[in-house]
Nucleic acid binder design. Sequence first.
DNA 1: AATGAATGAGACTTCATTCAT
DNA 2: GATGAATGAAGTCTCATTCAT
Lengths: 230, 230, 230, 230
Amino acid sequence: MDTTAPEENYSEKAPPMAPLSSLRELPTTKRGARTRAALVKAARKVFERDGYLDSRLADIAKEAQCAAGSFYTYFAGKEEVLAAVLLEAQEDMMHPGMGRVQGTDDPYAVLEASNRAYLEAYKRNARLMALLEQVAQVEPEFRRFRSRRADAFIHRNARGIADLQARGVADREVDPMMASRALSGMVSVMAYSAFVRGEEQEEGTPVDFEELVSTVTRLWANALRFPGHR
Amino acid sequence: MDTTAPEENYSEKAPPMAPLSSLRELPTTKRGARTRAALVKAARKVFERDGYLDSRLADIAKEAQCAAGSFYTYFAGKEEVLAAVLLEAQEDMMHPGMGRVQGTDDPYAVLEASNRAYLEAYKRNARLMALLEQVAQVEPEFRRFRSRRADAFIHRNARGIADLQARGVADREVDPMMASRALSGMVSVMAYSAFVRGEEQEEGTPVDFEELVSTVTRLWANALRFPGHR
Amino acid sequence: MDTTAPEENYSEKAPPMAPLSSLRELPTTKRGARTRAALVKAARKVFERDGYLDSRLADIAKEAQCAAGSFYTYFAGKEEVLAAVLLEAQEDMMHPGMGRVQGTDDPYAVLEASNRAYLEAYKRNARLMALLEQVAQVEPEFRRFRSRRADAFIHRNARGIADLQARGVADREVDPMMASRALSGMVSVMAYSAFVRGEEQEEGTPVDFEELVSTVTRLWANALRFPGHR
Amino acid sequence: MDTTAPEENYSEKAPPMAPLSSLRELPTTKRGARTRAALVKAARKVFERDGYLDSRLADIAKEAQCAAGSFYTYFAGKEEVLAAVLLEAQEDMMHPGMGRVQGTDDPYAVLEASNRAYLEAYKRNARLMALLEQVAQVEPEFRRFRSRRADAFIHRNARGIADLQARGVADREVDPMMASRALSGMVSVMAYSAFVRGEEQEEGTPVDFEELVSTVTRLWANALRFPGHR
DNA sequence: AATGAATGAGACTTCATTCAT
DNA sequence: GATGAATGAAGTCTCATTCAT
């Protein structure tokens, strides 16, 4: 089963749904490549630090140690750098095949491994996820981007659920798609709450990662009425 | 039991958590009250139409048919009108005691009624909820506002869960708070996805409201291992 | 001799050079008189506190506990209240005939009494003097007002000097007018520096009043080569 | 002796008391330097013409023939350009060592040369001095600037006076500092009155420069009881 | 390619003054 | 007379984007 987790999901390298176009052609010279890379890196730093809205192109250029005008050699504007940033991060934001849990067929173990992988990836890229959430609220283009990612993930989990239903492991009363939507959402909300909001406020008990994994997995398994008594 | 639902929940009229201050004093005269009300109404309309960030004070004033300067008689800026808008809407955004489901003690029925009430309120105020989500990404003050609301709700549901655990109706293995966080989040995510994102895109099957209620309720009940076989 | 001191000088009650017009007619009713008086008083307070430029009519009205609109019943604007404030204060700002130093003819004693009276009056109204200096830099009308006051004083002292020259008590080489300008200016500068600038900065040795009087008097007397060896 | 004259006095190039900071960094390119210089020049012109308070940044930009926004490339606001204007003028506002009156030790001659140098510098920069007086009434930062300048001058003259007292040339009864304050103030008042106020009003006898110098010098010398009978 | 100055549209605020009650 | 809300002109400042070197 592949009951991974919510909202983001691109384990397959495949053309990741051509999310964001690079209008500008890539630089020809070595020097150009270097500058462009510096800009993308700087952009990520500035975005994560100041937020997308409060960041200015001038800051990004300064951070990349190049002139404001140079920015436009590579990008048409803020949106486009952000696209580049996201594109570049996409790889790592995708949990790496959840370690396969080789050699088991136990649905619960698979589910747990899947959730763990998702949450680890989320944690690793928490600031970027926060950024994406913010941007999605503001730029339709990125709202669509986020939706597509979430949908891909949801569909995959829906297939997993349907499969389990077929095998008699999961409750047949629920619609696989709706259930996937709900449970995937549940996990992503928890991730956001733990790693994004958790970071903002200094106070409060930082959630224990293992407890997070096990709670989420247990609820998910129960919700689908996995057999067994855990 | 009071397993209401996610993110927002203020059936008790009690101190509406004095969320957002109205620095400017309220108008003395009838005329003033009328103008202020017109501004709040106009602000809500403009915010919901253009989004918080893309709206200009001038537009709000125009919508309220008053001079730009008049705005400042009542509010110090965008934030403050928004606070007023939210304050005014708070009442209705709170689902009204979920009808009590008088006469039953069936946890499942209570849960379902609670979820239905929550989702109805969410649907009724979908555009405002969308606005709140947007603003929370941008203005710390409103991020806190949203958090406080969610927390209040989560705590209430956590109490409900703990109660059910004590009565032997709910799985004792999960921490009530974490479970509440996860399940409440699940419902609010579904509400957002159905009523906010569902509205944006014309295409797609609009979710059936009843199916939403029953799915969410079933998953919630299962997750906590309510007894019985539904 | 009447070698009083600088910049301000209106001991004679006589129509004090019709300095500032009261366009608005004075109030008829008792209530009106009360309001007007309250406004003038409030204006002085606000002006002295916030400075002329940074004060707003709304503040004055509030301080006078009346509505903003009421202001215009009595004054055409800021300038006019200020005129009223100055008019009202004029009386006390004028040192009271310097006690005449009755019974002496000693020029030095007269001079000293005159300077003392001037400095006392200046000190008493320091904040208002500061205000006047400020306003004179900004409003031509009040620049002229200040000039006329200074001139009146200078002329008077010039007459005093001429008189002493005639009596052989003062150096005949200097032009009475120029000398008066210089010496009167000297005293007013000292007064400003001691009572206005001295107040602004907490630090520093506050000037000893008596030392101020005696220094100024001695220098003045010496400058005109009063006979005798003090 | 170095009984220069009043209020301003910086013949020594020494630390120009780092009066006003240029927060914005200076332009790198030649073009930038040109624009900045044009802005400073324009600012001086506009300030002297309209007064500090009534001048608008837009006017300055227009005068410098550049876009309004360009202003902010070099200055944070009105205050900062003014600082630049003052900084640039500082050099010339400082009378140049008063020609030294080489070869004489006659205190009177030195004093006269000093006063002449001061008054010439004042006259040369009369409009700027007027501006400074105005601004000092309005912006604390510049009030302090003016005070520091005056103080430097006063201290220098005080030293001169003390020196003369030691040499038996000046009256020992007066405190050097107070005397310096008074006499320095006397000269600056005369300068202001002659070159600033004298310009405003078309009418009136424009003061004869030489008479001004000699009167001021004579009174100063007398006040300190220089020996000799002039 | 890189630079960094120049541009200018546009949004925000303030407050003196007017005006309907 | 008094009230206090309404008005709207003016000025400030920000930055994405362009452009001459």
